[in-house]
Design a protein around this nucleic acid. Structure first.
Lengths: 213, 213
DNA sequence: TGTACATCAGTGAACGCGCGTTCACTGATGTAC
DNA sequence: TGTACATCAGTGAACGCGCGTTCACTGATGTAC
């Protein structure tokens, strides 16, 4: 469903590019990243099957754009969780984890396009850059947390951010998706991630729990 | 490629069911779990497009059988890693992690069918059971490790096994696949997992590193 | 040991379908003067 | 302000293709007697 309805009988759509991305998201959400076709997207947007070629070279290019847009929103959501490290780095770090899972649940279509579509991560420089900026947020959060430890006792922040990324992605993939059909858990995905991060941070030398927000 | 070549001109294939599973694995490896068709599999196995219907209701049933078989081999591989908890639980636990990644790398087609095909986990009781037995191996390993801790200071082994599963799955999905096109890392996937498990175990109260095998 | 027969596994032709892609086209929009 | 023209965005018909599925069939295998 496009946020801007096409005027009845209008020859020019006016916003077809965005409408196609939106249509692709809807279709991915329903049927997975492999389950939509170029013709499908055109139909959903209410245009002829030839129209999408004005905006995307092929299906893969459309999918890549969905992924790119997804990384941008993902980055924004992680940044909101981090919130500049406030009120303190530990709490903010925990909020980044929650934001990660919230994104995967709220936007399963973006998430699938980003991580499960089979697109090569550097299909285009734009896609690559968007993906790296999103990861950069995890890195920033890891830097903030590592800085709380005494010098000489600090783990590499890059490694730490890769650990957190992997854990959050694993939980999101296995349990935390908004599109049903997934495995069930004796606890929420958020609780699972939070408990894992807590134990992990204790392993790094932290002793107290992050404050709840 | 079937391990049993079809006799020239033989009318009966003799092993078509297994040959179709093998063909599906080859095609999944090449093009992803969504990238193979029933007709494709028949062609690879050298039979007419109608032949697979003698053995599988449809494409999804074939895919489910690939996944089921995958879970069985996965379970066996994890069990070999665990090796009854020998030489000691910590070392064996670490070996389970290595076995997890080794499987994902060596058998990307099975892994994709198991975790990335979009099949509902309880499509069939058989599939469900195979999946749970595989997870049971992680649970067994977690039990073994938890038992090393003093009573009163033991985390729930179920939670711990979910943590490990998520971490290993996250690393395998993001970095550790044998089919290329994945993100690159400043370390191996095995090193990433091992370091994460080490920190995690320290967080649980363990102080020494597991012995190397 | 031989024969008749039932069962099984795969054939090959056929069908309807939807997809990706192309093409010459046309209606709408923007701009130079 | 009006007009001519270039550019742009979407049309609709057409094509070849491969897929999923069905069907009556046939060749091979196994078994009862």
């Amino acid at each position: 469903m496009s946020w801007k309805r096409r005027a009845e009988g209008a020859y020019h759509h006016g916003n077809l590019r965005e409408a196609l991305i939106q249509a692709a998201r809807d279709l991915i959400k329903e049927k997975g990243p492999a389950g939509f076709t170029f013709a499908d997207a055109a139909r959903s947007a209410g245009v002829s099957p030839a129209a999408p070629y004005r905006h995307f070279r092929d299906r893969e290019a459309l999918l890549a754009d969905v992924a790119r847009e997804g990384f941008q929103r993902f980055e924004a959501m992680l940044a909101t969780g981090w919130n500049g490290g406030k009120p303190d780095a530990m709490t903010a770090f925990n909020n980044v984890g929650k934001a990660y899972l919230a994104f995967a649940r709220a936007e399963p279509a973006y998430y699938a396009a980003m991580f499960e579509s089979g697109l090569p991560p550097d299909l285009s420089p734009d896609l690559r850059a968007a993906s790296e900026r999103a990861f950069g947020m995890l890195r920033t959060a890891a830097d903030g947390v590592v800085a709380l430890l005494p010098q000489g006792n600090r783990p590499p922040a890059l490694m730490m951010s890769l650990h957190i990324w992997s854990m959050a992605h694993g939980i999101a993939s296995l349990f935390g998706r908004g599109d049903g059909g997934r495995r069930t858990l004796p606890m929420t995905a958020e609780e699972l991630l939070e408990s894992a991060m807590l134990i992990y941070l204790q392993g790094l030398g932290f002793s107290q729990k992050p404050n709840r927000t």
